[in-house]
Design a protein around this nucleic acid. Structure first.
Length: 507
RNA sequence: GCCGCGUUGGUCAAGGGGUUAAGACGCCUCCCUUUCACGGAGGAAUCACGGGUUCGAUUCCCGUACGUGGUACCA
């Protein structure tokens, strides 16, 4: 029937959702939307040893936060379910058996110990990683080496076995990658990958092919770490007789750590002080909590934009894209081949751009949770005013507290050293008397306050410039923040007085 | 070791036989601002290396180096 574009994101629910994972989701999503196709979420939970409670729900939460919700998923259902591989278990065996029947795969009865034995026996400096392949398979215990009767018997009495693909000899297997062009591998160099494990579950290799076929996936995008096993998948499509339906492949470049080399890992984030996961992840087993972009104060639109630009651009100078614009502009052939180092400074800049774009009204509900964290409960009007005064100095939502805490409470400690140097009795007198006559100021507004302040300074024979920094330190605690009289207006007569008195006591 | 993939400033990157090799982040200087930030104006900084092909290579080809991924009954 139709050749509607269908793509899928197929994570294995084992922990936090990494930057690179979200970017794979994003490129899938953009490609699907751009082509009026379907975006499927499939859960690859075939490794029962790696089951982690809550990890699947966490993936939904992350996708929802990013605004990249799938059209079909275990949660939502769809015409090609089930979407959880553990629930498709029986399907895979049939195809594995079919491959054995057609001579493309075989039963292998070697125990893990046998395999280890083979590897240690064969390991040399020239060949540090011996494989189960065309060179070694005839020395192992499998349906190719054992007499048929014995194989039958082992199977009948329920001996544990796996099914392995029988890689052909002397073939060049090639395919066209949407990003990288022609890619080819020699079949002799690829090992006889396990297709069906002893516990009856498929490995990724079998499952990805069977499910992509059954789910009518037209384009398959995944990380470049899959490139070396692509020939196995190509062969499986061929051996199963589905080659005409094989999706087009695109192997996405890696996201690398900012310093040194290598794939960005969660440890790098901890080490360098930035998140690596989309949302906070609490490991149920270890109790370890890993920070996410959300909790770090990123806006989802910014996060998505950052990821989109990490490996893709539309050839113009534009860097800020809404999701709708990305959908419009996205194409796989403009994705980079090389990996990109993640730059947290640039990420913060993106987020700042989105904060700047938003109105106080829009920012209000986004900022509030980050203020609440500090046990402060301002009313809407007050918070909005604060937001408007400080938003241009905030890169992250968490900065609203860092840049605005003094609007809600007196600073814990003040940078008294910056004032001390040029401090004198005259200034002490000035602030003391200003604090005392605050009560007589009838109109408590920034301009009136400033006038009053200026007047008194002139009367005392002091330059305003010498007094501004001390006043700021007294009210704010440091050398930052919006106009000092705006701050004074906001925090009110009483607090201004108190803060001045308190600072004076320290000088 | 072997195999795959990659390589334009510190980072993200445009470009692709002839260009002053864009732009952004970051950094520095200056302006604005009696703070910080925003904004504005400048600045430093780049085609990994060696061979070809060519009148001419950053661009095409081949090597080398380096990086990275894989080499599991993990995905």
């Amino acid at each position: 029937m139709s050749n509607k574009v269908r793509v899928r994101f197929a994570p294995s629910p084992t922990g936090g959702l990494h930057l690179g994972g979200v970017r794979t989701v994003l490129y899938n999503y953009l490609f699907a939307r751009h082509n009026d196709g379907d975006f499927v979420l499939r859960i690859e939970d075939t490794d029962q040893n790696r089951y982690v409670a809550g990890a699947e729900q966490y993936i939904y939460d992350c996708l929802e936060w990013c605004g990249l919700t799938p059209d079909e998923s275990p949660l939502k259902g769809g015409p090609y379910g089930p979407y959880r591989q553990s629930e498709r278990r029986e399907l895979y065996r049939k195809y594995a058996e079919q491959l054995v029947g057609d001579g493309y795969a075989y039963y292998a009865f070697d125990t893990p110990e046998d395999l280890e034995q083979m590897r240690t026996n064969l390991r040399t400096d020239a060949n540090p990683n011996p494989q189960y392949d065309g060179k070694t398979r005839m020395d192992m215990r499998n349906s190719l080496t054992l007499p048929e009767a014995e194989v039958r018997e082992l199977l009948d009495k329920g001996a544990p076995y796996v099914i392995r693909i029988k890689m052909p000899a002397g073939e060049t297997i090639s395919f066209t990658d949407m990003i990288r062009g022609e890619i080819s591998n020699e079949s002799d160099l690829v090992d006889d990958k396990v297709l069906l494990k002893a516990d009856g579950m498929p490995t990724y290799h079998l499952a990805v092919v069977v499910d992509d076929y059954l789910m009518k996936i037209t384009h398959a995008f995944r990380g470049e770490e899959w490139l070396p096993s692509a020939p196995v998948h190509i062969l499986l499509w061929r051996y199963l007789g589905w080659e005409d339906n094989m999706p087009q492949w695109a192997h996405l470049p890696l996201i690398l750590k900012p310093d040194g080399h290598g794939k960005l890992s969660k440890r790098d984030g901890q080490r360098l002080g930035f998140p690596v996961f989309a949302m906070q992840w609490k490991d149920p087993a270890s109790g370890e909590v890993l920070d996410g972009f959300k909790e770090h104060g990123f806006l989802p639109e910014a996060f998505v934009n950052i990821l989109a630009m990490l490996g893709w651009n539309n050839g113009t100078e534009q860097e800020l894209f809404s999701l709708a614009e990305l959908v419009e502009e996205f194409s796989m052939d403009r994705v980079h081949k090389g990996g990109a180092k993640f730059d947290f400074d640039k990420a913060k800049w993106f987020n700042q751009q989105y904060i700047l774009q938003k109105s106080e009204e829009e920012l209000l509900p986004l900022v509030r949770p980050f203020i609440l964290q500090h046990d402060v409960y301002p009313d809407d009007e007050y918070l909005k005013k604060v937001i408007s005064l400080i938003k241009e100095r905030c890169h992250l939502l968490t900065d609203f507290w860092a840049q605005g805490h003094f609007f809600f409470a007196a600073p814990d400690n003040i940078d008294i050293e910056s004032v001390k140097g040029k401090w004198n009795e005259q200034k002490q007198q000035f602030f003391s008397s200003w604090a005392q006559q605050l009560g007589s100021i009838t109109q408590w507004t920034a301009p009136m306050l400033e006038d009053n302040f200026n007047q008194l300074a002139t009367d005392a024979g002091l330059k305003k410039g010498e007094l501004m920094l001390p006043l700021r330190i007294m009210l704010v605690g440091g050398k930052y923040g919006p106009g000092v009289f705006d701050i004074a207006e906001m925090i009110g007569k009483e607090d201004v007085g108190k803060r001045i008195e308190r600072a004076l006591a320290q000088l």
